[in-house]
Protein backbone atom coordinates (compact mmCIF):
# COMPACT_ATOMS: atom_id res chain seq x y z
CA UNK A 1 0.00 0.00 0.00
CA UNK A 2 1.21 3.53 -0.78
CA UNK A 3 2.47 5.59 2.14
CA UNK A 4 0.42 8.59 1.07
CA UNK A 5 -2.74 8.86 -0.98
CA UNK A 6 -2.14 12.54 -1.60
CA UNK A 7 0.71 14.91 -0.96
CA UNK A 8 1.31 18.47 -1.99
CA UNK A 9 4.55 20.34 -1.65
CA UNK A 10 4.58 24.13 -1.76
CA UNK A 11 1.54 23.93 -4.01
CA UNK A 12 0.61 27.34 -5.37
CA UNK A 13 -2.12 28.61 -7.65
CA UNK A 14 -2.25 32.21 -8.72
CA UNK A 15 -5.11 33.82 -10.62
CA UNK A 16 -4.98 37.57 -10.13
CA UNK A 17 -4.25 36.97 -6.46
CA UNK A 18 -2.80 33.94 -4.78
CA UNK A 19 -5.63 31.44 -4.39
CA UNK A 20 -3.43 28.72 -2.90
CA UNK A 21 -0.19 29.84 -1.32
CA UNK A 22 2.61 27.28 -0.89
CA UNK A 23 0.43 24.59 0.67
CA UNK A 24 2.02 21.34 1.79
CA UNK A 25 -0.42 18.65 2.92
CA UNK A 26 -0.18 14.89 3.18
CA UNK A 27 -3.06 12.43 3.44
CA UNK A 28 -2.49 8.82 4.46
CA UNK A 29 -4.60 5.84 3.41
CA UNK A 30 -7.76 5.39 5.47
CA UNK A 31 -7.90 8.94 6.78
CA UNK A 32 -11.03 11.06 6.66
CA UNK A 33 -9.44 14.40 6.11
CA UNK A 34 -11.47 17.52 6.88
CA UNK A 35 -10.50 20.67 5.00
CA UNK A 36 -11.64 23.70 6.96
CA UNK A 37 -11.65 27.32 5.86
CA UNK A 38 -13.99 30.19 5.20
CA UNK A 39 -15.10 31.22 1.70
CA UNK A 40 -12.13 32.17 -0.45
CA UNK A 41 -9.68 30.28 1.77
CA UNK A 42 -8.49 28.24 -1.22
CA UNK A 43 -10.19 24.92 -0.43
CA UNK A 44 -12.00 24.59 -3.76
CA UNK A 45 -8.94 25.68 -5.75
CA UNK A 46 -6.87 23.04 -3.95
CA UNK A 47 -9.51 20.43 -4.73
CA UNK A 48 -9.65 21.58 -8.37
CA UNK A 49 -5.92 20.95 -8.67
CA UNK A 50 -6.32 17.48 -7.17
CA UNK A 51 -9.18 16.68 -9.55
CA UNK A 52 -7.31 17.96 -12.62
CA UNK A 53 -9.70 20.81 -13.38
CA UNK A 54 -6.89 23.29 -13.15
CA UNK A 55 -3.11 23.22 -12.97
CA UNK A 56 -0.75 24.54 -10.27
CA UNK A 57 1.22 27.71 -10.93
CA UNK A 58 4.10 26.16 -8.98
CA UNK A 59 4.78 23.37 -6.53
CA UNK A 60 4.06 19.68 -6.78
CA UNK A 61 1.24 17.33 -6.00
CA UNK A 62 1.17 13.58 -6.07
CA UNK A 63 -1.59 10.99 -6.00
CA UNK A 64 -0.77 7.47 -4.80
CA UNK A 65 2.91 8.33 -5.17
CA UNK A 66 2.62 9.53 -8.79
CA UNK A 67 3.44 13.12 -9.57
CA UNK A 68 4.04 13.22 -13.34
CA UNK A 69 1.20 14.56 -15.51
CA UNK A 70 0.65 11.14 -17.02
CA UNK A 71 0.87 9.40 -13.65
CA UNK A 72 -1.60 11.83 -12.09
CA UNK A 73 -4.09 11.18 -14.90
CA UNK A 74 -3.82 7.44 -14.37
CA UNK A 75 -4.19 7.74 -10.61
CA UNK A 76 -7.29 9.94 -10.98
CA UNK A 77 -9.05 6.74 -12.08
CA UNK A 78 -8.83 5.70 -8.44
CA UNK A 79 -10.52 8.90 -7.28
CA UNK A 80 -14.16 9.83 -6.92
CA UNK A 81 -14.85 13.56 -6.95
CA UNK A 82 -17.69 15.83 -6.11
CA UNK A 83 -16.75 19.48 -6.43
CA UNK A 84 -19.25 22.22 -5.59
CA UNK A 85 -22.80 21.68 -6.86
CA UNK A 86 -22.90 18.46 -8.90
CA UNK A 87 -23.37 18.96 -12.63
CA UNK A 88 -25.12 16.57 -14.95
CA UNK A 89 -26.89 16.66 -18.30
CA UNK A 90 -30.23 18.31 -17.54
CA UNK A 91 -32.17 16.39 -20.18
CA UNK A 92 -31.13 12.93 -18.89
CA UNK A 93 -32.52 10.99 -15.93
CA UNK A 94 -30.39 10.04 -12.92
CA UNK A 95 -29.93 6.56 -14.32
CA UNK A 96 -28.99 7.75 -17.83
CA UNK A 97 -26.55 10.29 -16.41
CA UNK A 98 -24.78 7.62 -14.37
CA UNK A 99 -24.93 5.16 -17.26
CA UNK A 100 -23.28 7.78 -19.49
CA UNK A 101 -20.31 8.07 -17.12
CA UNK A 102 -20.19 4.31 -16.56
CA UNK A 103 -19.81 3.79 -20.31
CA UNK A 104 -17.34 6.67 -20.63
CA UNK A 105 -15.14 5.23 -17.87
CA UNK A 106 -15.37 1.70 -19.23
CA UNK A 107 -16.73 0.33 -15.94
CA UNK A 108 -18.35 -3.06 -16.54
CA UNK A 109 -21.71 -4.03 -15.06
CA UNK A 110 -24.83 -2.03 -15.75
CA UNK A 111 -26.21 -3.26 -12.41
CA UNK A 112 -23.63 -1.04 -10.63
CA UNK A 113 -25.69 1.97 -11.62
CA UNK A 114 -28.88 0.60 -10.05
CA UNK A 115 -26.98 -0.39 -6.92
CA UNK A 116 -25.52 3.11 -6.58
CA UNK A 117 -28.90 4.77 -7.10
CA UNK A 118 -30.33 2.54 -4.39
CA UNK A 119 -27.39 3.35 -2.08
CA UNK A 120 -27.95 7.13 -2.36
CA UNK A 121 -31.75 6.90 -2.22
CA UNK A 122 -32.51 7.78 -5.84
CA UNK A 123 -33.68 4.34 -6.99
CA UNK A 124 -37.26 5.45 -7.58
CA UNK A 125 -36.64 8.65 -9.56
CA UNK A 126 -37.49 6.79 -12.79
CA UNK A 127 -37.48 8.99 -15.88
CA UNK A 128 -37.46 12.26 -13.97
CA UNK A 129 -34.92 14.50 -15.63
CA UNK A 130 -31.96 15.96 -13.73
CA UNK A 131 -33.18 19.51 -14.43
CA UNK A 132 -36.23 18.79 -12.27
CA UNK A 133 -34.22 17.50 -9.30
CA UNK A 134 -34.08 19.33 -5.97
CA UNK A 135 -30.67 20.43 -4.66
CA UNK A 136 -30.63 17.51 -2.24
CA UNK A 137 -31.31 15.03 -5.06
CA UNK A 138 -28.54 16.62 -7.12
CA UNK A 139 -26.14 16.21 -4.19
CA UNK A 140 -27.13 12.55 -3.86
CA UNK A 141 -26.55 11.96 -7.56
CA UNK A 142 -23.19 13.72 -7.26
CA UNK A 143 -22.26 11.32 -4.47
CA UNK A 144 -23.38 8.36 -6.60
CA UNK A 145 -21.07 9.51 -9.40
CA UNK A 146 -18.21 9.96 -6.95
CA UNK A 147 -18.76 6.40 -5.73
CA UNK A 148 -18.96 4.94 -9.25
CA UNK A 149 -16.17 2.41 -9.77
CA UNK A 150 -15.41 1.97 -6.03
CA UNK A 151 -12.75 4.70 -5.71
CA UNK A 152 -9.86 4.43 -3.25
CA UNK A 153 -9.92 8.17 -2.59
CA UNK A 154 -13.03 10.32 -2.34
CA UNK A 155 -12.67 14.07 -2.79
CA UNK A 156 -15.78 15.95 -1.69
CA UNK A 157 -16.21 19.71 -1.74
CA UNK A 158 -19.11 20.98 0.36
CA UNK A 159 -21.02 17.73 -0.19
CA UNK A 160 -23.80 18.28 2.34
CA UNK A 161 -24.99 21.64 1.04
CA UNK A 162 -28.68 21.35 0.33
CA UNK A 163 -29.21 18.07 2.14
CA UNK A 164 -31.98 17.81 4.72
CA UNK A 165 -31.05 16.57 8.24
CA UNK A 166 -32.03 13.00 7.33
CA UNK A 167 -29.95 13.25 4.16
CA UNK A 168 -26.94 14.49 6.15
CA UNK A 169 -27.16 11.48 8.48
CA UNK A 170 -27.50 9.06 5.55
CA UNK A 171 -24.64 10.78 3.76
CA UNK A 172 -22.39 10.48 6.81
CA UNK A 173 -23.30 6.80 7.19
CA UNK A 174 -22.39 6.09 3.56
CA UNK A 175 -19.01 7.79 3.98
CA UNK A 176 -18.26 6.02 7.25
CA UNK A 177 -19.27 2.70 5.71
CA UNK A 178 -16.96 3.29 2.72
CA UNK A 179 -14.15 4.22 5.06
CA UNK A 180 -14.58 1.29 7.47
CA UNK A 181 -15.47 -1.48 5.05
CA UNK A 182 -13.37 -0.56 2.04
CA UNK A 183 -10.67 1.58 3.64
CA UNK A 184 -11.60 4.47 1.36
CA UNK A 185 -9.63 7.61 2.08
CA UNK A 186 -11.80 10.73 2.12
CA UNK A 187 -10.96 14.40 1.69
CA UNK A 188 -13.97 16.50 2.62
CA UNK A 189 -14.36 20.25 2.80
CA UNK A 190 -17.34 21.74 4.55
CA UNK A 191 -18.56 24.87 6.23
CA UNK A 192 -20.58 22.78 8.64
CA UNK A 193 -17.83 22.19 11.17
CA UNK A 194 -20.03 20.28 13.60
CA UNK A 195 -20.62 17.73 10.85
CA UNK A 196 -16.92 17.54 10.04
CA UNK A 197 -16.19 17.03 13.74
CA UNK A 198 -18.41 13.92 13.64
CA UNK A 199 -16.63 12.51 10.66
CA UNK A 200 -13.01 13.54 10.21
CA UNK A 201 -9.98 11.79 11.65
CA UNK A 202 -7.66 14.60 10.54
CA UNK A 203 -7.99 18.29 9.77
CA UNK A 204 -6.28 20.98 7.76
CA UNK A 205 -7.18 24.61 8.36
CA UNK A 206 -6.79 27.11 5.55
CA UNK A 207 -7.07 30.87 5.37
CA UNK A 208 -6.34 33.23 2.47
CA UNK A 209 -4.76 30.41 0.50
CA UNK A 210 -2.37 29.40 3.23
CA UNK A 211 -2.34 26.28 5.36
CA UNK A 212 -2.63 27.36 8.99
CA UNK A 213 -2.39 23.95 10.60
CA UNK A 214 -2.68 20.24 9.90
CA UNK A 215 -3.58 18.11 12.92
CA UNK A 216 -5.29 14.87 13.84
CA UNK A 217 -8.74 14.86 15.43
CA UNK A 218 -7.12 13.54 18.64
CA UNK A 219 -4.75 16.49 18.72
CA UNK A 220 -7.58 18.94 18.13
CA UNK A 221 -9.66 17.22 20.80
CA UNK A 222 -6.77 17.57 23.21
CA UNK A 223 -6.51 21.26 22.44
CA UNK A 224 -10.26 21.74 22.80
CA UNK A 225 -10.44 20.04 26.22
CA UNK A 226 -12.29 21.76 29.05
CA UNK A 227 -9.96 23.60 31.43
CA UNK A 228 -9.64 26.37 33.96
CA UNK A 229 -7.93 29.33 32.36
CA UNK A 230 -6.10 31.23 35.09
CA UNK A 231 -4.47 34.64 34.67
CA UNK A 232 -1.94 35.57 37.33
CA UNK A 233 0.90 38.05 37.85
CA UNK A 234 3.54 35.33 38.25
CA UNK A 235 2.95 32.09 36.32
CA UNK A 236 6.08 30.16 37.46
CA UNK A 237 5.24 30.76 41.12
CA UNK A 238 1.61 29.74 40.48
CA UNK A 239 2.81 26.58 38.76
CA UNK A 240 4.90 25.66 41.81
CA UNK A 241 1.81 26.07 44.01
CA UNK A 242 -0.31 23.93 41.65
CA UNK A 243 2.31 21.16 41.92
CA UNK A 244 1.66 20.99 45.68
CA UNK A 245 -2.01 20.30 44.92
CA UNK A 246 -1.23 17.26 42.81
CA UNK A 247 -2.59 19.20 39.83
CA UNK A 248 -0.03 18.06 37.30
CA UNK A 249 -2.27 18.41 34.21
CA UNK A 250 -1.67 22.02 33.33
CA UNK A 251 0.20 24.07 30.78
CA UNK A 252 1.77 27.48 31.09
CA UNK A 253 1.06 29.80 28.17
CA UNK A 254 2.63 33.11 27.30
CA UNK A 255 1.20 36.15 29.07
CA UNK A 256 1.13 34.50 32.53
CA UNK A 257 -1.81 32.30 31.57
CA UNK A 258 -2.15 28.79 32.96
CA UNK A 259 -4.56 26.16 31.65
CA UNK A 260 -5.45 23.61 34.29
CA UNK A 261 -7.19 20.43 33.10
CA UNK A 262 -8.15 19.07 36.54
CA UNK A 263 -10.16 20.48 39.48
CA UNK A 264 -12.68 21.89 36.98
CA UNK A 265 -15.50 21.69 39.51
CA UNK A 266 -13.42 23.24 42.28
CA UNK A 267 -12.12 26.67 41.21
CA UNK A 268 -12.50 28.10 44.76
CA UNK A 269 -9.76 25.76 46.07
CA UNK A 270 -7.43 26.85 43.28
CA UNK A 271 -8.02 30.55 43.83
CA UNK A 272 -7.58 30.18 47.61
CA UNK A 273 -4.32 28.26 47.06
CA UNK A 274 -2.91 30.90 44.74
CA UNK A 275 -3.95 33.91 46.81
CA UNK A 276 -2.67 32.34 50.06
CA UNK A 277 0.60 31.53 48.23
CA UNK A 278 1.12 35.25 47.40
CA UNK A 279 0.15 35.14 43.76
CA UNK A 280 -2.13 37.87 42.47
CA UNK A 281 -5.09 36.21 40.78
CA UNK A 282 -6.31 38.35 37.88
CA UNK A 283 -9.04 36.02 36.57
CA UNK A 284 -10.15 32.42 36.61
CA UNK A 285 -12.63 31.04 34.06
CA UNK A 286 -13.89 27.63 33.02
CA UNK A 287 -13.18 27.25 29.33
CA UNK A 288 -13.96 24.68 26.68
CA UNK A 289 -14.11 24.91 22.89
CA UNK A 290 -15.40 22.97 19.92
CA UNK A 291 -13.98 22.72 16.42
CA UNK A 292 -15.72 25.93 15.39
CA UNK A 293 -14.20 27.93 18.25
CA UNK A 294 -10.85 26.28 17.68
CA UNK A 295 -10.96 27.35 14.04
CA UNK A 296 -11.96 30.90 14.97
CA UNK A 297 -9.16 31.09 17.53
CA UNK A 298 -6.74 29.85 14.90
CA UNK A 299 -7.93 32.59 12.59
CA UNK A 300 -7.33 35.13 15.35
CA UNK A 301 -11.04 35.61 15.94
CA UNK A 302 -11.67 36.72 12.38
CA UNK A 303 -15.07 35.92 10.94
CA UNK A 304 -16.37 36.33 7.39
Amino acid sequence: MEEFVFTSHELTKRYRDLAVDHVSISIRPGQIFGLVGKNGAGKTTLIRMISGQTFPTSGDLSLFGQSSENGLQKMRRRIGCMVETPSFFPYLSARDNLEFYRIQRGIPGRENVDELLRQVGLADTGKKKFKNFSLGMKQRLGLALALLGHPDFLVLDEPINGLDPMGIVEFRDVLLQMNREHGTTILISSHILSELANLATDFAFMDQGRLLEQASAAQIHEKCRSCLEIRVDNAPQAATLLDTLDASEYEVLPGNVIRLYSHLEDPQTISRLLVNGGVALLSIDTRSSNLEEYFLNLMGGKTE
Binding site: G52, Q73, I79, C81, F88, F89
Partner: peptide, 19 residues
Amino acid sequence: FSEEHKVQTMRNTVFYGTP
Protein backbone atom coordinates in the same frame (compact mmCIF):
# COMPACT_ATOMS: atom_id res chain seq x y z
CA PHE B 1 -20.79 19.32 -27.64
CA SER B 2 -24.02 19.35 -25.63
CA GLU B 3 -23.36 22.65 -23.87
CA GLU B 4 -20.78 20.95 -21.66
CA HIS B 5 -19.37 24.29 -20.53
CA LYS B 6 -22.80 25.71 -19.71
CA VAL B 7 -23.95 22.69 -17.70
CA GLN B 8 -20.41 22.14 -16.36
CA THR B 9 -20.36 18.41 -17.03
CA MET B 10 -16.91 18.25 -18.58
CA ARG B 11 -15.35 18.31 -15.13
CA ASN B 12 -16.92 14.89 -14.42
CA THR B 13 -14.87 13.54 -17.31
CA VAL B 14 -11.70 15.34 -16.21
CA PHE B 15 -12.11 14.03 -12.62
CA TYR B 16 -11.65 10.51 -13.89
CA GLY B 17 -8.31 11.33 -15.48
CA THR B 18 -9.57 11.12 -19.05
CA PRO B 19 -6.76 12.79 -21.05
